[in-house]
Design a binder for these strands. Structure first.
Lengths: 205, 205
DNA sequence: TTGTCAAGACGATACGTCTCGCTTCAGCGT
DNA sequence: ACGCTGAAGCGAGACGTATCGTCTTGACAA
């Protein structure tokens, strides 16, 4: 037996792929999900809007969620390049970041696709893993690094598990966004930071 | 014009409704979502499994999500009856409750329908509101009452916004469950309680 | 008599696959 | 250098299947 270069039966030649079609598909998907929501987002509609054959979509993406994922997440981002600000004041830095997160979550243009992708992870664990690995976890690791720095600066109790502490910060924001129970505001972000930071404050001697 | 009792064009006579069919439909929906997931859950499959005409489902429910919702949430629960334990030790009580929540979220039987309903709220805001109002908010209000009692007992800083403090408790659990980043354990619940409770501890002087 | 019920026919979509020519591009011989 | 040629992606859309939500029928119960 020879070591054929095609372990999988299907192996489209990526070098001959049309970048023009790829972009048209991604743009069409984003447009449609913004206009009519994820429910009205169909492969056929994307193909029609993009001026593209359906097969071109099925050839390169396993699902419409995967299309939307690629449309939302630019490929060339270096996970290690994500860095939280470090002015030396952990409270101020966290408020800056969480306020920006609040603004993103309130951005109408990002809302529909983000909600759609999040929802799809319930039915599509593979998508969930990709989303976590490529988007979520790199950001959480940036929190871990920033909190470690704060620990070394004596602003955070060295015994606290920063991986859990970070979830005290992002968990509440995510919860409000997901459940739409109460509005997401800068004031809310500030209060969350204050409460969480008091929880991991250095112990008194 | 007469004040007809039917503001909506469609007004099925609820008094003549078949309870037998209703139960069969709800049971079938729960069975199917457990067996094959929400993706394979179709109105036709529910009707077939329940031995019921499709029209009987369409007559009484607006969507399959509404069917699943009613199947999961028994009607006759009094929101005010939900009460957190109060042994006088707020830390112990919260750990008891959050550990139970962890167990619920890890329960395979509840996992599929709960994830499906949560996901559907992205496309169906009406369902989201119903879920929040009937299930989520009553539980959150129980947290509010328990935390208020802790404030009066001097175990929690009286200036803390307990509505936000509660989100420091449930937000992280919900976040881990939703993103599947790390396992949901009792130890995790305990650490979250400890951190959050330190954040709202009474000021020293 | 009236309205729900089970059963299923019906047209409308969207699915995912397949088949058409058309275009592009790498490899090759001349 | 030049052009032939086969392979692969491309736009377009036909095809059969599945599910949708509506509609019709006859049985049955209040």
């Amino acid at each position: 037996m020879t070591d054929v270069p095609t372990p999988t039966p299907k192996a489209p030649d990526a070098s001959r792929r049309s970048e023009r079609s790829r972009r048209a598909i991604l743009d069409a998907a984003l447009e449609l999900v913004g206009e009519s929501g994820f429910a009205k987002l169909t492969i056929e509609a994307i193909a029609a809007r993009a001026g593209v054959g359906k097969q071109t979509i099925y050839r390169w993406w396993p699902s419409k969620a995967a299309v939307l994922f690629e449309a939302c997440v630019p490929e060339g981002i270096d996970p290690a390049s994500i860095e939280l600000p470090d002015t030396g004041d952990i409270a101020a830095d966290l408020k800056t970041v969480l306020r920006a997160t609040v603004d993103d979550l309130n951005d109408a243009r990002l809302d529909a696709p983000t909600r759609a992708l999040t929802a799809e992870t319930a039915n599509d664990p593979e998508l969930g893993r990709a989303l976590t690995e490529k988007v979520l976890e790199p950001q959480l690791q940036a929190y871990v690094r920033r909190l470690r720095a704060a620990q070394e600066a004596g602003q955070v109790d060295p015994d606290t598990d920063v991986r859990i502490a970070l979830e005290l910060l992002v968990g509440p924001l995510f919860h409000r966004w997901q459940t739409r129970t109460l509005p997401l505001t800068h004031a809310y972000a500030d209060t969350v930071v204050d409460l969480a930071l008091r929880g991991m404050a250095p112990r008194l001697p």
